[in-house]
């Protein structure tokens, strides 16, 4: 159970990205986060693993206050939270297998990382994850030789290496075409359904929300404006979320 309580983030420049946001996510849920660009979706997801420090408010995960964790404790929390990014954020010049193995960095001893050494079990595990996302034949290629869809699958394999209990996906399909988008989303769905991993996924397209999400929260200018089931987003709600001038497409 993830509980967000009165979460507020004001950036150094005075921009209020999150304004008193509160909601709860039960274990094993696929939650979609929607809203316009700049509405605070990315900030919200990054506050949960504290890549961005919230200004005030609490984030409780199974009763543990993430916002109060020390650096070392946060490291241990982070390795249970996988993250998937819009621009994949792979290390381009490294091999695919190295990118996947880096998901294991929170577990291995830092002293051995100095000499770029991973335990044998981890390497086998990485190959299994690559098999699962269907690109095991690319393991020894450089990450930037892969197409966008393949790179995102590497990103998912990297997140899976963490044995995550939660995955934060920040617009994972916004840089991909519709066919690839469905393939990536179905991987996330598979992880959610079969591994019981909680998924928080920000999305742009409502048809993807309807197809994959169990529940939706919507942000507008940092405020929570909707929380409920995807089918409950009617035209009135839609205009509340996306503004008066918005038109539904797709």
């Amino acid at each position: 159970m993830l509980q967000i309580k009165n979460l507020t983030k004001i950036y150094d420049g005075g921009v209020q990205a999150l304004d008193n946001v509160s909601f709860e996510v039960p274990d094993g849920e696929f939650l979609a986060v929607i809203g316009l660009s700049g509405s605070g979706k990315s900030t919200l997801l990054r506050c949960i693993n504290r890549l961005i420090e919230p200004t005030s408010g609490q984030i409780l995960w199974d009763g543990v206050d993430i916002t109060a964790a020390s650096q070392e404790e946060m490291r241990l929390v982070r390795r249970k939270i996988g993250m998937v990014f819009q621009h994949f954020n792979l290390v381009h010049r490294s091999k695919v297998i190295t990118n996947v193995l880096s998901g294991r960095l929170g577990y291995v001893n830092p002293a051995w990382s100095l000499v770029n050494r991973f335990p044998k079990e981890d390497i086998e595990k990485a190959m299994r994850q690559l098999t699962r996302v269907g690109i095991v034949d690319k393991a020894n290629q450089r990450a930037d030789e892969l197409s966008g869809g393949q790179q995102q699958r590497v990103g998912i394999a990297r997140a899976l290496m963490q044995d995550p209990r939660m995955i934060l996906a920040d617009e994972p399909v916004a840089s991909l075409d519709p066919v690839l988008a469905h393939s990536i989303m179905s991987h996330l769905e598979d992880i959610n359904k079969n591994d019981g991993v909680m998924v928080l996924c920000s999305l742009h397209f409502l048809d993807l929300v309807h197809r994959y999400a169990g529940r939706v929260v919507a942000l507008n200018a940092g405020k929570l404006v909707f929380e409920g089931l995807p089918k409950d987003i009617d035209d009135k709600k839609f205009k509340e979320i996306y503004g008066r001038d918005a038109e539904r497409v797709g």
Binding site: H87, R93, S102, G103
Partner: peptide, 24 residues
């Protein structure tokens, strides 16, 4: 981006440098 991604896996500062900074 890669820096952020490696940090999000729970890597410490030294590991982040070795796996996200040095290859770049």
């Amino acid at each position: 981006g890669p820096l952020e991604a490696i940090e999000a896996t729970g890597a410490n500062r030294l590991q982040t440098i070795i796996y996200a900074v040095i290859p770049q």
